[in-house]
Amino acid sequence: MLNWFHRLGSPKTFFEISGRWQVPLLSLAVLMLAGGAAWALLFVPPDYQQGNSVRIMYIHVPAAILAQSGYVMMAGAAAVFLIWRIKLADVAVKCVAPLGASITFLALVTGAIWGKPTWGTWWVWDARLTSTLVLFFLYIGVIALRSAMDRQAGVGRACAILALVGVVNLPVIKYSVDWWYSLHQPASFSLTEKPSMPIEMWLPLLVMVIAYYLFFFSVWMMRIRNEILVREKNTDWVKQWLAVR
C-alpha cells in the first residue's frame, strides 16, 4: 500500500498513469454533465413552491458541495506534502486552488441567480451563501500567498500550512455562520431543506454531483500534468515525451 503510494507519488508514474485516464475520465464527465443537465432541464417536474427555478438546483448544489470538499481535498494534499514531503502533493495543492476557487465562485453566482426568483433579491445573507463566501476568501488567501511567494523556497510548505489552518477553521466558521443566521433569521423559507425530495428530483441531482466530481478530478489531473511538465522539464523522460509530440 505504502509502496504503491510512493510509486504514484513519483511524477513520472503519475504522468504515465494519468495520461491513460484523462481522456476517458473527461469524456465521461462531460457526457454525464450534458445528460444530467438535459434531465434537469427537460424531465424534472417543476417544484410546487419554486416552479421551474428549481432547475438551477442541479448546477448549484453540486458546485456548493464540491467547493467545500475541494478545500478539504486541498488540505489533505497539503498534509501529505508536509508529512511525507511528496512533491506531487505540492503540485496537487497548487493546481487545485484556482480550480476550487472557480467552483466556489460558480456556487456563489448560481446561488445568487437562484435567489432572485426565489427570494426576490440577488443576495441574501443566508447561512449557506455566507459560509460559501468565506470559503471563497479562504481559497483566495491560498492563491494570493502562492502568487506573492512565487519562486521562494518555502512557498509549497507555506501554502500547505495555510490550507491546513483553513481546514481546521472551516467547521468553526460554518457553525458560527449557521448560528449567526439562526439568530438573525429573516422571514423566508429555506432553499434546500425540503421534507423529502421525490426520487425523480434527487436522482438527477446525484448524477450531477457525480459528474461534477469526475469533472473536477479530470481537470485537476490536467493541471497537475502541466505543472509536472514544467517542473521536470530537464529530466530525460520529459524530453523523450516531448520529442514525439
Binding site: N52, I113, M222
Partner: peptide, 28 residues
C-alpha cells in the same frame, strides 16, 4: 420561457457552461 424563470435558469446554466469550459480550456 419556463414560466418567467427562463432568464434566471438560462443565465445560471450559461454561466456554468462558461466556467466549466474555461476550466478545460486553460489547461489545454
Amino acid at each position: 420561457y419556463m414560466d418567467g424563470h427562463g432568464i434566471y435558469i438560462w443565465a445560471a446554466y450559461g454561466l456554468t457552461l462558461v466556467i466549466l469550459a474555461a476550466n478545460v480550456w486553460f489547461p489545454l
